[in-house]
């Protein structure tokens, strides 16, 4: 019955669109609220009625953010740390995953399982011993220290995810490359990695957002403005029991943009990477 099938399809499409709309609103409203609040004067933020649209829009919060706080330094530090963490995670993740997927050596399985366990240990258990080590190695309050700490949870995840993907790359392609004179590293770079772009995009995006959004380590390991990241910088807008919502929302909105940009750049591969193995072709 073609008509019924078409009607059912239309109904499902409407339901699907409706659900998507709800999810869209659910996702965008916090962003809108951040922007709107950052454009309101304090009097309006603390007004009796919550206003959806700022009555008297002002950039005062942004002026304060850029002129009276070291917000740009926070952005610089977050960028250095997130980009470095991402780059190093990709390099170590690729090398580690390739070794675990392709090479045969004693303890391989143990290491692979160990990666998962490492990833499962919550940061709240690790921050004190990690800080102790950082202090001992004079790495506390440095970009390098924070990057190293973040690698502790990004590298295991990247390695684990890439390991699964590398296994799905046909071995014959690599063998052909080796026969043609490629080294192992050459085969990895020239054959495996170009075929693994979706997985690389996922791990890059994951590493970047993890490093960009992390709070606990950044709070404990960093003291100086020269190293402080955005997440911990945001807390400086809470003085005792008073919240300075305008600049805080402005800073939160601006800090949400870089992960969004990274996502948009890698979007095509990220979606593909996230659905890897969902269906067999």
């Amino acid at each position: 019955m073609p008509r019924t099938t078409s009607g059912t399809r239309r109904l499902f499409r409407w339901i699907g669109n409706g659900l998507l709309l709800v999810m869209l609103v659910w996702t965008l409203v916090p962003f809108y609220w951040m922007i709107a609040t950052s454009l309101k004067a304090d009097r309006e933020i603390y007004g009796f009625e919550a206003t959806l649209v700022p009555h008297h829009p002002t950039l005062a919060a942004y002026v304060r953010l850029f002129q009276q706080t070291p917000f740009l330094k926070y952005v610089r530090n977050s960028t250095i740390i997130a980009v470095s963490t991402t780059a190093v995670s990709l390099v170590f993740g690729c090398l580690g995953a390739y070794a675990l997927a392709r090479l045969r050596f004693r303890g391989r399985r143990l290491i692979a399982r160990g990666l998962v366990f490492t990833y499962l240990v919550p940061p709240s258990l690790l921050f004190i011993p990690l800080f102790a080590m950082m202090s001992a190695l004079s790495l506390a309050d440095t970009h390098q220290g924070l990057i190293l700490a973040y690698l502790g949870f990004t590298v295991p995840f990247c390695t684990w995810l890439l390991m699964g993907y590398f296994r799905s790359v046909p071995l014959e392609l690599e063998e052909a490359a080796l026969v043609d004179g490629c080294t192992r590293l050459g085969a990895l770079i020239r054959v495996v990695l170009p075929m693994s772009l979706p997985a690389l995009a996922v791990v890059a995006f994951f590493s970047f957002t993890q490093a960009w959004n992390e709070f606990l380590y950044a709070n404990v390991f960093v003291n100086s403005v020269e190293v402080r990241t955005i997440t911990t910088g945001l807390t400086m807008f809470i003085i005792e029991d008073v919240f300075f919502w305008g600049p805080m929302m402005g800073a939160a909105f601006l800090s949400a943009l870089p992960p969004l940009v990274v996502y948009l750049i890698f979007q095509r591969w990220v979606v593909k990477g996230l659905t890897l193995g969902a269906v067999k072709g």
């Binding site: 606990l216 709070n219 911990t232 807390t235 809470i238």
Partner: peptide, 10 residues
């Protein structure tokens, strides 16, 4: 160092 109230104890 200026340390925020939030997370001071940790």
């Amino acid at each position: 160092a200026t340390v925020a109230n939030e997370g001071f104890a940790e």
